[in-house]
């Protein structure tokens, strides 16, 4: 698959946006300038960027508790995101959702989800609606290796395959479910082995290589859009920060050596090296992208910090939708 320079630069931009937003969010949390939990996506950028670059604006995604990267990759607005993380009224969910419930239906982002595996049936439900309406949309569900042990995943995967729904399952296998290594909770290593059990094709991709992810995602999205049913991608990846992304929180559960090995395959470094080699983006131009994005993040932080908290009177607003009185 020969990708245009525009697509390559777009994927790079998405990855850099995720990295800077997440690094800043982690820093703010450690400085106690940001309330609540957050789970950083740093290290896994190639997955969200490679997949979302294969989607149209109308396509949908559902996400996880580690969901900032997915929303950024789908085009999320830094200011509304940062405000939401800070619980401010200018945030995506008016400050009531926070990190783990951030969403933007206009962008097709159906929501991060604090319940492990919770996003899977949501995307499959969207897939059912899309097929029913015959609107040509595709829904993608991002989930982790741990989520594939949850009952909701199995029911949703079965339904998607049985009804041949236009859904792409993207498993971000980062080897740990929260603090527990994968081999303590699963007798299999490749989550993709489960795809055949439901009757859908599945592939493993290098989750640190955005082009590899994009190639597989583009094929899976094409299959879904052309009525050939769901597909399953398992991206082998790794989170560079601990489960929460806050270094002072939680326990040590991975060796420094293991982390160092994975960091040698930083997806942004690998991609920038290749872009420079192929003449698509020089190191200087890449640096300019980083600087510009870093500035946008700082602007978003200032916007969020200056924004007001929600009024107490709004506590019950937007809790239920369309309930008849």
């Amino acid at each position: 698959m020969q990708l245009s320079d525009d697509v390559l630069l777009d994927m790079h931009h998405r990855m850099v946006r995720i990295r800077h937003f997440e690094e800043a969010a982690g820093r703010l949390a450690e400085e106690s300038r940001l309330p609540g939990f957050l789970h950083l996506y740093v290290g896994e950028e190639a997955v969200a960027a490679g997949v979302c670059a294969a989607l149209t604006d109308d396509d949908q995604i559902s996400s996880t508790h580690r969901g900032h990267g997915h929303l950024v990759a789908k085009g999320g607005d830094f200011e509304r995101m940062m405000a939401e993380l800070m619980g401010k009224s200018t945030g995506y969910c008016k400050g009531k959702g926070g990190s783990m419930h951030i969403c933007d239906l206009d962008l097709g982002m159906l929501g991060a989800n604090g319940i492990v595996g919770g996003g899977v049936p949501i995307a499959v439900g969207a897939g059912f609606a899309n097929k029913y309406r015959d609107d040509g949309r595709v829904s993608v569900v991002f989930f982790g290796d741990g989520a594939s042990n949850i009952g909701a995943f199995h029911e949703a995967a079965n339904m998607a395959a049985a009804l041949q729904l236009p859904v792409v399952f993207v498993c971000e296998n980062n080897e740990y479910g929260e603090f527990t290594p994968r081999d303590r909770t699963m007798a299999i290593t490749d989550v993709v082995d489960r795809a055949a059990g439901y009757g859908m094709p599945g592939v493993i991709v290098d989750g640190m290589d955005v082009v590899a992810v994009h190639e597989a995602a583009a094929e899976a999205v094409d299959r879904a859009r052309s009525g050939q049913g769901p597909s399953f991608l398992e991206a082998k990846t790794y989170r560079f920060y601990n489960h929460h992304g806050i270094q002072t929180l939680g326990m040590k559960y991975r060796s420094d050596e293991e982390l160092a090995e994975w960091k040698k395959r930083d997806p942004i470094d690998l991609f920038e090296a290749r872009l420079a080699e192929s003449g698509v983006l020089t190191a200087k131009d890449a640096e300019a992208v980083h600087e510009r994005v870093a500035g946008e993040v700082e602007q978003a932080i200032a916007f969020a910090e200056e924004s007001p908290l929600p009024e107490v009177e709004s506590l019950y607003e937007d809790v239920y939708s369309g309930v008849a009185q």
Binding site: D190, V203, V205, A216, R223
Partner: peptide, 21 residues
């Protein structure tokens, strides 16, 4: 090789998956 039989050809062709089991 643990990853043999699991690449993109399961999507773009009719290659069969080879599971760990």
């Amino acid at each position: 090789n643990p990853i043999a039989g699991k690449d993109i050809r399961r999507l773009v062709s009719f290659a069969s998956p080879v599971s760990d089991m």
